[in-house]
């Protein structure tokens, strides 16, 4: 993986990124993909503090547990 691919959990608030890879457990990965977080999708990080990360994907807002967010790899976009 190239340098600009980082875990979603490290993205600052109000930043945008593109999903590269999801590598959590099968069930959780599929749930997220079904909610629209497939590789290539643009994601906006709404909130990233303590606790779950809040993102906007395809017009809906999703809260994702922090442990899960460590396993979602994204590419920053400027």
């Amino acid at each position: 993986m190239s340098d600009d691919v980082v875990p979603l959990s490290t993205m600052p608030e109000n930043s945008k990124c593109v999903v590269e890879e999801l590598s959590a457990g099968v069930g959780l990965t599929r749930r997220l993909m079904e909610m629209g977080m497939v590789p290539g999708t643009e994601v906006e990080v709404v909130r990233n503090n303590l606790g779950p990360i809040i993102v906007r994907v395809r017009g809906i807002t999703i809260a994702i547990g922090r442990g899960m967010a460590h396993h979602i790899f994204v590419k920053k976009i400027e």
Binding site: A24, G25, L28, R31, L32, M35, P52, I54, I60, T61, I62, A63, I64, G65, G67, M68
Partner: peptide
């Protein structure tokens, strides 16, 4: 095996 992770939609 592992702590379940929250995935929940925040509807408007």
């Amino acid at each position: 095996k592992e702590v379940p992770e929250l995935i929940i939609e925040l509807p408007s």
